[in-house]
Design a protein around this nucleic acid. Structure first.
Lengths: 198, 198, 198, 198
DNA sequence: AATGAATGAGACTTCATTCAT
DNA sequence: TATGAATGAAGTCTCATTCAT
C-alpha cells in the first residue's frame, strides 16, 4: 500500500485510540494489554506501533482525550458576555458529563479516573492533566467574575478561589456517580440549590 | 514451630501494609511489585505470603485503610447534637486531609486516587470504596440536618442530596491539590465562604 | 513499464550495497535493520527488495565486497616476475589496508571482522570467505617462491606453509588496529624487520 | 529453596555460561536467543535472569571468558627468567589453542571471532577485548626482551613493536583454521621456522 | 516498476507465586 | 514457621518481508 492520505492516517490513529479507550474503560490502563488493543483495533501489532511508539504513548493519547473532553462542556455556556448563574453552568455541565459517560464507546469518566491515578507516577499524563484542568478551571474563574457582576457572589471574593470550589464539584460528582452510583444531575443540582447563594 | 502470638501477627501485618503503602504512594498499585513490597517490609517472600494470600489482598488492605482514614476526620466534629456549620465542618476536614497527606509514610490521598481507579475493575476494592464512602456521606447527611435545624439550609431540602454536594467537595479538593497543586484549606475555605449560604 | 538499462540496475545495486556497508560498519550485520538500509539508500522497501531478495543476500554482497577488496592490494606488487621481498610486500599491503579503512564510506576492515564472525554460521559467507582468502593466500605462495629464488627464504621450505604465515600477518594487524588501536604500518613493519630473515 | 551457598550460585552461573557458550559457538551471539540459552541451561527464564540481568550481560561474560582463555596459554611458558625462543613460544601456544578449540563444550576460537566483531559496536565487549589483548601482548613483549637478551632478535629493536607482530600471528592462525581449515600448529610452525630469524 | 503501510512470528524480559530445604 | 531461588505464563515491542495500489 503506497502513500496514504493524511486523513487515512488520522482515521487509523483514531481507530486505535477508540479501541484502546474501550479497553481502558473496562480494565484500566494497566490491565489493558497491547494484545487487547491490537485485537480491538483490528490491526496488527506492527501497524499499531506504526502509529504509537509505545503503550505509554497510547495511554497519554487516551488521557489527553479524556481530560480534554470536559472542555467541550463549556462550548455554548460562555458564548455571550452576559452574567451566568454558577448553578446553571454546573447543571448543564453535569448533564453533559452524564451524556458523555453513556456513549457506547467507553465511559469517559472512567478514563478520567484512570488518568488521575496515572498522573501521580507518569509525568506525561501529569502534565496533560495539570494543563487541561488549569484551563478548565480558568473557565470557572470567568463564571465567578460574571456572578460577581450580578451580585450572586460577593464582590470582594477572589474569583480564583471561587473557581477552585466550582471546579471541585465536578470530580465530586463523577466520583460518586462511579463509586456509589446514586447521584444524578437532578439530585446534585437540587443539593447545590440548597446550599449555594442565589 | 512455636505459635506466635496474635499481637505478633498483627504487627507483622501492619508492617507489610505500611511497606506496601509507601510503595503504592510512590508508584501506584500496578507498578508496585511484590518484590518491592517484600524488600520494603524487611520480610521474606514466604513470610509476606503467610499474611496475605495474594497481591490483590494487599491492594485491598491498603485501599481499605486509605478509604477508611477519611472517617477519622469526623472524629470530634459531630460529637454533640448541636448545630454545626457545613462551612466549619469542611474547613476542619480539609485541614485534616492535608495533615494526613503530609505524614511521612506515604501520602494517603495518593492512595485514595489509586483506589478510586482500582475500584472500577476490582470488585473487592469497589465494595470497600462504596461502603466507606456511603458511611462518610452519611455523616454529611447529619451535618445537613443540623444545618437545616438552625436555618442555614432551607428546611425543604433533601438532606441526602445536600450531603452529596458537601461530600463532593472533598474529592474536588484532593484532586486539585494533587494535580494542580495550588489549593489549600485556606483558599478553598475562602472560596466556599463566597458561594455558600451562611 | 519501461525496462531500465542494465547500467541503471547496476548503479541502484551499488547504491544499496554502499548504504548497507555504511550501516554495517557502524552497527554490525545484525543490528543493521532493513529499515536502516532502506533509509540510507534513499529507496523504498519495495525497490530494495527488487534488487536483493533478502537481507541475507545483502549481507553476502557486502561480505563479498569487503573480502575481495584485499585482493586489490596486490594489484601492482606482483606484476613482474622478479623477486620481491616479503617484508616489502607486507609493508605495502598494510599501508593499503589503512588507506582503505580510512575511506569515508565505511571502514572495510570492520566489515571484514563482521564477515569473519558471520562466516561461522552463514554458509554463503563462509564460501565467499574461504574462496577469497584461498586466492589471496595463493598470492603469498608466489611471494614465498620468489623469496626462495633469491635466497631470502630457505629453499627447502614449503611455500604453502610460508604463505600461511605471511597471510596471517594481515588479520593480526587488522585486529590489533581495531581492538587496541596502537598499531600502524610503520610500527608493524619495524617489528617485522626485527624478526624476519633478510 | 532457602539461601544457597556461594558455590551453588557460582555453579549455576557457570552452567548458564556454559550453555550460552555452546549456543554462541554454533549460532553466533545474535542468532542465539535467550530461549536457546534457557533451554540449554536446563533452567527457567526467571532463574537465568536471576544470574544475569540481560542477554548483553551474558554476551559480555562469554566474551570475557573466551578472550581471557588465551592467557592461560602462557601459564608455564614464561615461568623462569631464561631466554625463550619466540618460535617455541608460538608453537606451544598454537598447540594449546587447538586443544582448547577441540574441547567438547563449544569451540572457544569461534567465540573469540564473535567477540572481535561484537567489540566493534558493544563498548563493554570492546573494553574487555582491549584489556585482555593488551595484557596478552604484554607477555609477548617479555618474550621479545628475552629473545634480545640471547641475540635472536636485534638489540636495537623495540620490543613493543616486536610484540605486535608476535601477537599478530595468533589471530592469523585462528582465522585461517576456521575459515580455510588447512592450517595446523605443525604447518604454521614450519612456515614460521622458514621466515623467522633463529 | 515503485511505493510504503501492513503483517505477525518471535525476541527479550518481568514478576506473582510456590515449595524444597 | 521462615527462607528465597526457582518457575513459566504473559507482557511489550521489533523487524524482515509482502502486496494492494
Amino acid at each position: 500500500m503506497p502513500k496514504v492520505s493524511e486523513e487515512h492516517r488520522m482515521a487509523r490513529r483514531a481507530q486505535i485510540v477508540a479501541a484502546a479507550r474501550t479497553c481502558v474503560a473496562e480494565q484500566g490502563f494497566h490491565k489493558t494489554t497491547m494484545a487487547d488493543v491490537i485485537a480491538a483495533s483490528d490491526l496488527s501489532a506492527g501497524a499499531v506501533y506504526g502509529y504509537f511508539k509505545s503503550k505509554e504513548d497510547i495511554v497519554a493519547a487516551i488521557a489527553e482525550e479524556a481530560l480534554s473532553s470536559v472542555d467541550e462542556l463549556f462550548g455554548s455556556v460562555l458564548l455571550t458576555g452576559e452574567p451566568v448563574s454558577p448553578l446553571l453552568v454546573l447543571e448543564r455541565i453535569l448533564k453533559h458529563i452524564v451524556s458523555m459517560a453513556e456513549r457506547p464507546d467507553g465511559d469517559i469518566t472512567k478514563i478520567a479516573l484512570q488518568a488521575w491515578a496515572e498522573s501521580l507516577r507518569n509525568p506525561a499524563v501529569k502534565a496533560i492533566a495539570e494543563d487541561k484542568y488549569r484551563m478548565l478551571r480558568g473557565r470557572f474563574t470567568e463564571v465567578a467574575r460574571r456572578a460577581q457582576a450580578d451580585g450572586t457572589i460577593p464582590a470582594d471574593a477572589d474569583p480564583e478561589q471561587v473557581a477552585q470550589v466550582l471546579f471541585g464539584f465536578i470530580p465530586g460528582f463523577i466520583l460518586q456517580r462511579l463509586l456509589i452510583g446514586d447521584v444524578t444531575p437532578q439530585s446534585y443540582t437540587a443539593g447545590l440549590r440548597a446550599i449555594l447563594r442565589d
